[in-house]
Design a protein around this nucleic acid. Structure first.
Length: 219
DNA sequence: CACCAGGCCCTAT
DNA sequence: ATAGGGCATGGT
């Protein structure tokens, strides 16, 4: 299978996942931090605590008005809560310079914005790109550990470098926000089901195309 | 009990 | 330049 066939194959297996990352843009900015190396279920618990505590329409501003200790307490279920509370603070301080207005932030050219996000302590490439793609609707492909695993298992492509993988996908797929949103979502959903860390790929519907399973069979 | 989850930063070679 | 440790909760 070629990389440019992955999207329609995954879609035929999992159906349409739409935008995939739930929540308003403001919530997505927050969950982008919360989900770092963390199960989504725990992210939801943490995010619910935040929403329960904040009834204002400007959730970003309200959250930033709270002391870090209080934020940490709210997001406890997401794990790494001290680290993440500080990372949220850094991000919110940055957003404050745009008056917590994501619509304003959207007007900044994507590459400039990405550089700014990467300067924030606690925001790496994946988190920055997740914010760009899902909160700000920029056509930037998000790479995560699942993406690397799928490249390795299905295509026998072993690349560690984030930018290289991103370039690979953005070469094979046109810059389309909905497409990138859905493709990343499909990759995650597929990998969670069929490409677990401990390789048990036997039930994977892509086995006929899967380089990894073919290697296993021949050995 | 061990291992994993929608990463990132800091430190020691 | 890059491997390794720390951060921490909840599910399997």
């Amino acid at each position: 299978m070629k990389l440019n066939e992955l999207y329609k194959k995954l879609k035929s297996i999992h159906g349409s996942v739409g935008k995939w990352w739930p929540g308003t843009p403001e919530e997505i900015v927050i969950t982008a931090i919360l989900t770092q190396n963390t199960n989504w279920k725990n992210v939801e618990r943490a995010m619910n605590n935040v929403k329960k505590r904040i009834n204002e329409n400007n959730i970003l501003k309200e959250l930033n008005s709270m002391p870090v200790e209080e934020i940490a307490d709210l997001i406890k279920p997401a794990g790494f809560f001290n680290v993440k509370a500080n990372r949220l603070k850094s991000l919110l301080e940055f957003l404050k310079s745009y008056d917590y207005n994501l619509g304003l932030l959207e007007k900044v050219p994507t590459n400039i914005l990405r550089e700014s996000l990467l300067k924030i302590k606690g925001i790496g490439k994946e988190t920055a790109d997740a914010i760009l793609l899902y909160a700000l609707e920029k056509p930037v492909f998000v790479v995560d550990s699942y993406t690397k695993r799928i490249l390795e298992r299905i295509f026998n492509i072993k690349i560690c470098d984030y930018d290289e993988i991103q370039q690979l996908f953005m070469t094979y797929y046109p810059p389309n926000t909905s497409l990138y949103q859905e493709l990343h979502g499909l990759i995650v959903e597929h990998a969670k089901k069929f490409c677990t860390k401990n390789p048990k790929c036997d039930k994977c519907p892509l086995n006929g195309d899967c380089y990894f399973s073919q290697m296993n069979r021949s050995t």
